[in-house]
Each structure stands twice: as structure tokens, then as C-alpha cells.
Computed example of a mutant assay.
Amino acid sequence: MIREYQVRDEYAELQASQNKIEKLKKEVKDLWALVQTCQISIQVLEDIQQGGNDYWFTRLRDAAHRFQEQDKINEKIMNLAQDVAEHVTVLAREARILRPHVVSNEMKASLELLFDQIKDLGIRVRPYLPKN
């Protein structure tokens, strides 16, 4: 009976971890949208054709500034992706520990669904991680 309560507590912790992962996924998505906005802005600047050296100097300076901002955003994405990857790893480890102790079919089904989601998150976060 005590083990069943422990399993339920561990399951609740896994659910909380899953909620954190969902929040991190949203943050990665938001940052990625910001990167794309910067890329579009740079493209618009490059597509504008006006004369004069002052114009081209200003345009070049603005593009350089946008590249710097994009580098900062990319760094945030990389850090966030590493956090997600670490959290997914911990979550998978905890779920594996919990698996042999699950008794009800409903909890087994939920745990299997959670495993599938963990695997999916691991695959989706890989492109954002630094290449070693």
C-alpha cells in the first residue's frame, strides 16, 4: 500500500516535469519565431534599393546590429535547448525507475504515453543542441 502511494507521488512528479517541459518547448518556439522575424527584417533591408552612401552605411550598420541580436537569440535558444535536453533525460530516468512499480493499467497507459512524449521531445530538441 505504501509503495502505491510512492508510485502515485512519483507519477505526480513526472506530470509536473512534463508541464515544465511543455513550458520550455513554448519558450523555444517563441525564441525561434523571434529569430525568423530578425531574418525577415534583414532580408527586407537587403531588398530595399535606394541611393546614397549614407543610406548604405546606415543599412549596413542596421544589418550588423540585427546579426548581433540574432546571435544573442541563438545563444538563448541553445541554452534553453540544453535545459530541455537535461530535463528530458532526468524525466526519462525517473520514468524508467517508476515503470516496474506501476500496478494499474490506467497508470501503465499514462506512463507509456509519457515515454512516447519524452522520446518525441528528445528528438525535437536535438537540432537546437550544439554539435559536439
Rank of each mutant, 00 (worst) to 15 (best):
M1H: 13
E10I: 03
Q15H: 05
Q15P: 01
Q18W: 14
N19R: 15
E22A: 09
K23Q: 13
L24D: 00
L24V: 11
L24E: 12
E27F: 02
E27C: 01
K29F: 08
K29Y: 07
K29Q: 15
L31N: 02
L31W: 02
L31H: 00
W32R: 13
W32I: 05
C38H: 03
Q39E: 08
S41D: 05
S41R: 01
I42N: 05
I42T: 11
Q43G: 12
V44S: 06
L45P: 00
Q49P: 00
Q50H: 09
G51C: 11
D54Q: 14
Y55P: 02
Y55C: 06
Y55S: 02
R59I: 02
D62H: 13
A63T: 12
A64V: 08
A64H: 05
H65V: 13
F67D: 06
E69D: 10
Q70Y: 02
D71T: 05
K72L: 13
I73C: 04
I73T: 09
I77M: 03
M78I: 13
L80T: 13
D83E: 08
V84E: 07
A85R: 00
E86Y: 03
E86I: 05
E86P: 01
V88Q: 01
V88H: 00
V88C: 02
T89R: 09
L91Q: 12
A92P: 00
R93W: 08
A95S: 03
I97W: 01
L98C: 01
V103H: 15
V103S: 11
S104P: 02
S104F: 00
N105E: 07
E106N: 05
A109E: 12
A109R: 06
A109Y: 10
S110L: 08
E112T: 10
L113I: 09
L114I: 11
L114H: 09
K119F: 03
D120V: 02
V125M: 05
R126L: 09
P127Y: 12
Y128C: 09
L129G: 03
